[in-house]
Amino acid sequence: MNSPLRRFSAVSLLAAGLLSLSGCQTPRDAKYIESGGASTVVTLDQINIQDWNRAADAMVASLLSSGVLERVPEQPAVLAISRIVNNTQQQVDTDSLTKKIRVALNQSGKVITTTTLGLGGKVEDPLAKESAEMAAMLAGQKQVTRLPYYTLSGKLLEDRAQAGKVKQVTYTFQLSLTTVKDGLAVWEEEKQITKQGTRSSVGW
């Protein structure tokens, strides 16, 4: 092989290698990525955004497929969010799960969530509650609050295991939908998400 051809081949190979590497390399400069998308960071010590998304998606699909929402006497059914117990090692805002579920159920037209009734009297929208009370008082009427037909409760669990350098964490998301009038759980679901590795990574 003559030397210009050899040089051309070497340069081409180098360029191809660089191009292919640059397509997959870890970004150094900050940039926008799709929230919860395939480029998001995966860690072993916390529930990542994609974990919340996956859990919420599975819960919504299960609830909508179960048929229980068709059995309510008046649609949309009113839902109140009850206690979501966090038994993981980290401090999380359980709205990361429940809000996604609420949004999806609201979109479906099957369920609406009350924001003026909360666990232990702590309401999500105190202004709406006070305004309703004020309006009722000015009208000389007793305030009528639409009571929830369902309540949503649940628990977050964490299980850790290690074999040598390989760490494994399983997050378990449990939810129950209870009918207020009889206190029976008409729908229950559990979704487990397991992550394994030696260190955090970008993309999955």
Partner: peptide, 9 residues
């Protein structure tokens, strides 16, 4: 749109 539109492994 909606919560179901996400990449899943």
């Amino acid at each position: 749109g909606g919560v179901s539109e996400l990449w899943l492994p």
